[in-house]
Design a protein around this nucleic acid. Structure first.
Length: 586
RNA sequence: CGGGGCGUAGCGCAGCCUGGUAGCGCAUCUGCUUUGGGAGCAGAGGGCCGGGGGUUCGAAUCCCUCCGCCCCGACCA
């Protein structure tokens, strides 16, 4: 039992001015955390208790499928150079030099360290599969730490890594993690959704994120309430409603039309009395790729899509294998289009025969295929073409899905309207493949005595994000409530007036009974007015409260649920049973 | 890295434009009263006004510069 009068729980009445999102405000106000620098936080008593409960759940579940390691945060540059990520990770990795001038990095993830162990120790297929995990601090020099505790520079992560003899084994390891993650997030009381995701800079194939819906999230998720389809916007696809193409005019061939000052999609649509969907949008990029030596090369890219659609730059980069992109400058537009922004179009371009062969990469969004009689820019100031039919009037290097899915479009599996909402990522599992084992030279002998490269998977959980996501899911203007499984205490016993000896004694008794029944109990024995204690109790996230008040004279106390504010009077002697009945099984 | 904002007591802020030696609310400490939704009265403590430089008789205030933090964007296993 912890007595509040002896604890350091610095609650704040006023909202710190730096805090924007709910979880940030309340973590500060409830005395869970304090900020040390941008994206750097200290966890105080309550915060640390909650984090410890989360870790305990994660550890308990992970131990069913893997083995916990403790790995160094300080990594010699060499292993990162071997994997190619010393340069590949760019500025996001904290780097430092030791007294001899040797370069080191603070680990932002541990593929390299795990693979180093694997290559030195694993010799035979008989040793596989292996699942190794760690729960440790990771460092990332984020371009912009933000949203309070949601994007920080130092954070706790559970990371696991699987080594298998073949792809079928990797499938099993991946599925094991999928199942365990669902149990972990469920036990932590989160309402989450598993989505298809882009595998990003980590490399690899199948990738799945575990997302919690919240307005504070940085990711957009497209989901279908009907069949359960859900995907990150970077990966989401949709079915489009059939469109009526325009009827051709004149001889049906592209016709140059004077469109003075109509450089924007909306203006063009209005000018021709068409919907933006009948227009071809042109977006011109310079896309960077990196050579093996880390040198960057920039490639011109012309992307065409429906006027009412938007480019998804992640999809575009993935298609080209690019590392970065920016839109073209005016001089570059002149070079590749011979036309100005606002009037760019696909007709007359010389598309590269294959991607990145030095010529203009012309990429057409899949939604343009099969369309006829569209409108597009003429690569000439104040002129557009009409009667433009993709394939007949212009060609391309490649057609692919490069657009953003929009709310209301059809689910790709069942056709029902998709919903698009913000979410925060709490976990990510994906199949790495051979990227690290190959580059770092991990080899084992297979049953035939042949040397083979093990295949890897990588699986992360953001420990503190579970806490922040839970707060985002359960808060009101007075504070928040955590699921009992991850709350710092199950229940706070509030003695409304400690100068009343009878109430004080009753509070001690109730707290002792609850503790004996296995609950984590916080006894609010502070010499404060009842109102102050109620406000604090509502603020700090504890799911249940027992009020020790006037009804003690009748042998009764009051049990209050934080989330609903519902309260009931219960016999003092039966409080432990009453709370057991109220609390959901952990 | 681009754009914007902020930095004055533990927290929230005013003062700055128009220079004259720092103030309000909450919190803290002491005493008395109070005790079911952030109490009342009386008293007290607490500030290199983010750092450095400059202008001036005089700088929180004007100028230069550096640092830090927040927001938008870029970015982001």
């Amino acid at each position: 039992m912890h007595r509040w009068s002896k604890l350091f729980v610095p609650t704040l009445r006023e909202v710190p001015s730096d805090a924007e999102v709910a979880s940030h405000k309340f973590l500060l106000r409830a005395g869970y955390v304090r900020q040390l620098g941008a994206g750097i936080y200290s966890y105080l008593f309550l915060g640390q208790r909650s984090v410890n409960k989360i870790i305990a759940i994660v550890r308990e579940e992970m131990d069913l499928i893997g083995q916990e390691f403790l790995l160094p945060a300080l990594n010699p540059a060499e292993i990162w150079q071997e994997s190619g990520r010393w340069t590949g990770m760019g500025q996001n990795m904290f780097r430092l030099q030791d007294r001899k001038g040797a370069w080191l990095a603070l680990g932002m993830t541990h593929e390299e360290v795990m693979t180093d162990i694997a290559r030195k120790e694993l010799r035979s297929y008989k040793q596989l599969p292996q699942i190794w995990y760690q729960i440790q601090t990771k460092f990332r020099d984020e371009p912009r730490p933000k949203s309070g505790l949601l994007r920080v520079r130092q954070f706790l992560m559970k990371d696991s890594y699987s080594f298998d003899i073949d792809a079928a084994g990797l499938d099993r390891s991946f599925d094991l993690h999928d199942q365990v993650y669902r149990k972990i997030f469920t036990r932590c009381g989160l309402s989450f959704v598993a989505v298809e995701a882009d595998s990003g800079a980590m490399g690899g194939s199948q990738s799945q994120e575990f997302m919690v819906y919240t307005e504070a999230g940085e990711d957009l998720i497209a989901s279908c309430a009907c069949c359960g389809y859900a995907a990150n916007m970077e990966k989401a696809v949709s079915r489009l409603a059939p469109l009526q193409d325009l009827a051709p005019t004149g001889d049906g061939q592209p016709e140059l039309v004077f469109t003075p000052g109509k450089g924007a999609i909306a203006d063009v649509a209005e000018f021709f009395h068409i919907s933006p969907a009948q227009d071809v949008k042109t977006v011109a990029y310079m896309v960077e790729t990196k050579s093996a030596k880390g040198e960057s090369v920039w490639h011109p890219v012309a992307a065409f899509l429906r006027g009412d659609h938007f480019v998804n730059e992640t999809k575009l980069l993935g298609l080209l294998g690019g590392s970065d992109l920016r839109t073209m400058q005016a001089e570059e537009l002149e070079t590749w289009f011979r036309g100005p922004a606002g009037y760019l179009g696909p007709i007359g371009l010389a598309p590269a025969a294959s991607l990145l062969d030095g010529k203009l990469n012309v990429i057409v969004d899949a939604a343009l295929e099969g369309r006829t009689n569209m409108v597009c820019g003429a690569n000439k100031l104040d002129y557009h073409f009409r009667n433009v039919t993709p394939g007949r009037d212009f060609s391309w290097t490649i057609a692919a899905d490069i657009r953003n899915v929009a709310e209301g479009e059809g689910c790709p599996t069942c056709g029902a309207p998709l919903k698009v909402a913000k979410a925060v990522e709490v976990g990510h599992i994906f199949k790495l493949g051979y990227k690290y084992t190959e580059s770092m030279g991990a080899r084992v002998l297979d049953p035939n005595g042949k040397e083979v490269t093990p295949i890897m998977g990588s699986y992360g959980i953001g420990i503190e994000r579970i806490l922040t996501a839970a707060i985002e899911q359960g808060n009101d203007p007075n504070g928040f409530w955590l699921p009992p499984s991850i709350a710092p205490f199950d229940v706070v016993v509030t003695i409304t007036n400690v100068s009343d000896a009878a109430l004080l004694a009753a509070g001690e008794k109730v707290a002792a009974d609850l503790e004996a029944a296995g609950f984590d109990v916080l006894l609010d024995d502070r010499n404060e007015r009842a109102g102050v204690k109620f406000k604090d109790a509502d603020l700090i996230g504890i799911p249940y409260r027992v009020n020790i008040g006037k009804k003690v004279a009748e042998g009764k106390v009051e049990l209050v649920r934080r989330a609903s504010a519902a309260s009931e009077d219960v016999e003092m002697a039966g409080i432990a049973l009453a709370l057991s009945n109220a609390a959901l099984p952990a």
